[in-house]
Design a protein around this nucleic acid. Structure first.
Length: 847
RNA sequence: GGGCGCGUAGCUCAGAUGGCAAGAGCGCUUCCCUUACAAGGAAGAGGCCGGGGGUUCGAGUCCCUCCGCGCCCACCA
């Protein structure tokens, strides 16, 4: 039955990664068997890493967690559907291409088929056509993806590499456009011209989920507004440059100071605009003077006031963050000419100067620090600009939908459980629908055209959608049905929607993309909804929520049953590791230094959802464990049990019994997603196996006493080793596979997960305490030798073990093994209150 | 301002439904080349379990409160 044994003399970890990566690939060890039915499948919605981002140990950390679960379920007999995606779509790639090649996209330029990027990026970015730009994006991401794949393979992720996708590839674009068209047809997607948050650097709209607050220095400026009776109304503002955009003054309806003013007309300083005094509960009597100017638009509260109070628009900031050239209606154009064309900053300086000159600045500006909204990837504060954008409903303005989506979150299994709260917080706090259009270039285009009227104006109310069968389409180069290409951008013809979808609009469909939604209905049937979504906690509000929303609309259910949220890797100062902080360790270097198994050991010791310190000490421990497995295995496999060997000795059966408990514990932990607990238990047990059990049976196993007792030891050693290798396999795939190959056929990763009941049956009726009693006695004998500062091999002429009668009865059954391991010629016992050992050591003869 | 999480040996962390006379590894001390392993092995020292109250026969584990740290969210006048 067993293969010939091939145990190396001097086993080592070096070279195992390259060797087994190649064999696993050649043997298709992790290949998905698509004949499996849904109940036999465990499918994983792997996070597609942003390939333009840098690789860091945080990736190793969380992807290892997922891989341990994948390997566990595979060993339990599931067909694991474990694809890998690349998120190459979107702004990070654009930015990287700009910097890497020194180019920028100018959509007005024609395509140059012979274009070659400069060898070195020049001082000024070279303008190139959109198509040339996108080609560079594709070229660069291909390189990035290779680096990621190399890392993942080296790390030993058991991914089926035949199942990769990229968020910009044809299948993703098709799924993304198809899902959008269906959202549109069902009324879940819509277009609206409305004020929205706008990044003036990237010149694109951004979504609520992509905002972050940053503390910024600012200053309160107290401005003198004028009442009709000539009195002044002081108002504080941090944005005096928006004075020209002021459309009203607001105060809280209950604010006694302003009761008489509500409904009156106020004159703004400098620009002399007549604006109404209005009341709204969002006005905070505690802030500033209690009265605030409403501008179109200084912040999101302005938008709320503007909408709810039906105020006019007086927009002055353009899409590049400058003051527009022409003064809005109703204000004095003379001072406006002084700020027109300036940047926000310049306009603020000039406005303040003018206010000082006119005497309408009261006192000096008072410096403060306040939170300002930024695009998370941006460098300049967001402005609010009115533009036409696509939205997908997400409950932000529909309580029934919001409740339905919160309910979906409650049906999801969260690991750890408390992460659910973040989801509910976010969904509960939404204040608008999901803005998915971006005024960018490298992304999935909207599959939409607009008819042009006789004047060449687009009819946005009657968009022409692409046919599903034609997807994916690029509306800027393909023609809608019913038109000819020469009608493009001609009066009476058509024009393409110029925007692309935000990257989350595509990655929110990762389960559908990964499972070949509509492209391969048979495969989809076998894999969707998926079992596991592993991801980081900071993107619960984006990726997780958006994915739930899309599946809610498209499938009326959850996209997966479990969400496993990983923590962060912290540097020793307890700060999140990130590139900007300059404390990132290159993962490939770390892999070279410690080895994949060691790194995986460190990663696996981080509890689900818990932030974990980057600690080289743990990696050294992992490496030592791997080496220990090699050496202990070499010892165990040095002798072969007879085919009919049975565990007859008490010590052996006690070991098997404890091993059965370990297997049950590890299995239960894994079932709950707690890989770390499974590892910890296995590791603790394994060290006691090598330190105690191995020493106790060494002599017996190698024929010291001969007969069935030796067979029992050899049988038990091999049975235990087999179980340990399987238990360790999800964590240390390389060393376990290597040892497995010394005497077994096939891959340990395709061998079954151990079953506690089988070992328990083999152990029979035994007191598992026997293993501990033997180990305790041996430890006491070692202590005596250690205290006497003699070699552990020193012979004991007579040892006397004192212990309770109960424990001595157990010791009786394992006494020969204890005597062997302790090198005791004679082992006596005496009843006493607790364990103690005395021993007479044989005098060392001089060498 | 609201919410979540964390605070256990010098360091990194375990301690599931309360029973612990408090654990692991690293580091530290002492000893040992024992025929699986000296990039090893054996033995050992080291904690008012953040502070204060409470519930209980019994609390690191439950409740209250305070302190410190981290994160998420919040309408930026």
């Amino acid at each position: 039955m067993t293969a010939p044994r091939n145990v190396p003399q001097k086993p080592a970890l070096e070279g195992l990664e390259a060797k087994w990566d190649e064999i696993w690939e050649a043997d298709g060890t992790y290949r998905f068997d698509r004949t499996a039915t849904r109940d036999q499948v465990y499918s994983i919605d792997t996070p597609p890493p942003t390939v333009s981002g840098s690789l860091h140990v945080g990736h190793i950390f969380s992807y290892t967690h997922t891989d341990t679960l994948a390997r566990f379920h595979r060993m339990r007999g599931k067909q694991v559907y474990y694809p890998m995606g690349w998120d190459d779509n979107g702004l990070p790639t654009e930015r990287r291409v700009q910097n890497y090649f020194g180019v920028r996209c100018d959509p007005s330029l024609p395509y140059d088929p012979d274009f070659q990027p400069p060898d070195e990026p020049g001082k000024d970015q070279l303008p190139i056509s959109r198509r040339n730009f996108v080609e560079l994006c594709v070229q660069l991401t291909a390189t990035d993806e290779q680096a990621f794949e190399e890392l993942w393979r080296r790390l030993g992720l058991s991914i089926d590499w035949s199942l990769t996708y990229a968020t910009i590839d044809e299948r993703s674009r098709r799924a993304s456009q198809r899902a959008f068209l269906r959202n549109l047809a069902r009324g879940e997607a819509y277009q609206s011209e409305a004020p929205s948050l706008w990044d003036v650097t990237f010149r694109t709209a951004v979504a609520q989920a992509e905002l972050e607050d940053r503390e910024r220095p600012g200053a309160y400026h107290r401005l003198a507004f004028h009442l009709s009776d000539g009195a002044d109304l002081p108002i504080d503002t941090t944005r005096p440059e928006l004075l020209a955009a002021c459309v009203a003054v607001v105060a809280h309806p209950d604010d006694q100071r302003y009761q008489p003013l509500f409904g009156q007309t106020i004159t703004t300083p400098l620009f002399k605009a007549a604006v109404p005094m209005v009341a709204h509960t969002l006005a905070d009597p505690e802030k500033g003077t209690g009265a605030a100017m409403i501008c179109t638009f200084g912040d999101t509260t302005d938008v709320t006031w503007w909408r709810e109070l039906n105020l006019p628009v007086r927009a002055i900031v353009d899409r590049g963050g400058r003051i527009v050239a022409d003064a809005p209606e109703g204000i004095d154009p003379a001072p406006y000419a002084e700020i027109a064309g300036r940047t926000i900053h310049g306009a603020q300086q000039r406005t303040v100067e003018l206010l000082k000159e006119s005497g309408e600045l009261i006192g000096e500006p008072r410096a403060i620090t306040h939170p300002v909204k930024f695009f998370e990837k941006g460098q300049r504060p967001l402005e609010i600009v009115t533009s036409r954008q696509w939205y997908i409903r997400n409950g932000g303005r529909d309580p029934a939908l919001r409740d339905a989506l919160i309910e979906r979150g409650r049906k999801l299994d969260w690991v750890p459980e408390h992460m659910r709260v973040r989801y509910e917080n976010w969904v509960g706090g939404l204040n608008g629908d999901w803005l998915i259009s971006r005024q960018r270039f490298f992304g999935v285009p909207f599959p939409i055209w607009y008819p042009l009227d006789a004047d060449g104006q687009p009819d946005y109310d009657h968009p022409v959608a692409a046919d599903e069968a034609s997807l994916p389409v690029d509306p800027s180069s393909e023609t809608p049905s019913g038109y000819t290409e020469d009608q493009r951008d001609q009066p009476g013809g058509f024009t393409a929607d110029p925007d692309v979808m935000d990257t989350w609009a595509t990655s929110s469909l990762s389960p559908q993309i990964a499972c070949y939604w509509e492209d391969d209905p048979d495969l989809f049937e076998r894999t969707f909804p998926m079992d596991l979504r592993p991801q980081a906690h900071e993107i619960i509000r984006t990726w997780l929520f958006a994915t739930v929303t899309r599946a809610h609309f498209e499938h009326g259910g959850l996209p997966w049953s479990t969400a496993a949220i990983s923590g962060w890797v912290l540097d020793p100062d307890r700060k999140k590791m990130s590139k900007s902080k300059g404390n990132v360790v290159t993962p490939m270097d770390t892999l070279e230094t410690f080895g994949a198994d060691a790194l995986r050991y460190w990663a696996s010791s981080g509890r689900p959802g818990t932030d974990t310190a980057f600690e080289e000490g743990q990696m050294k421990v992992g490496r030592r464990l791997a080496v220990k497995i090699l050496n202990a295995s070499r010892f165990v496999l040095g002798q072969e049990p007879a085919a009919d060997a049975q565990p007859t000795e008490t010590l052996d059966r006690a070991l098997l019994s404890r091993l059965a408990d370990l297997i049950d514990d590890a299995t239960a932990a894994f079932d709950k997603g707690d890989y770390a607990r499974a590892l910890e238990g296995t590791e603790t047990s394994f060290w006691s196996f090598t330190d105690d059990y191995l020493e106790l049976v060494k002599n017996r196993a190698y024929g010291g006493r001969g007969g069935p007792a030796g067979e029992s030891a050899r049988y038990t050693l091999e049975t235990a080793l087999t179980a340990y290798l399987k238990l360790f396999a999800p964590f240390l795939p390389y060393v376990t596979e290597e040892v497995w190959s010394w005497w077994q056929q096939g891959s340990v990763h395709r061998s079954g997960w151990p079953v506690g009941a089988e070992l328990r049956a083999a152990a029979g009726d035994v007191n598992p305490e026997a293993a501990a009693v033997a180990a305790d006695a041996l430890r006491e004998i070692r202590r005596i030798k250690s205290d006497a500062k003699v070699r552990l091999a020193t012979t004991v002429t007579t040892a006397t073990v004192t212990d309770t009668a109960e424990r001595l009865a157990i010791l009786e059954q394992v006494a020969d093994d204890v005597a062997d391991a302790g090198r005791c010629r004679e082992l006596l016992t005496a009843v006493g209150p607790e364990l103690s050992v005395t021993a007479e050591l044989e005098t060392e003869t001089a060498a």
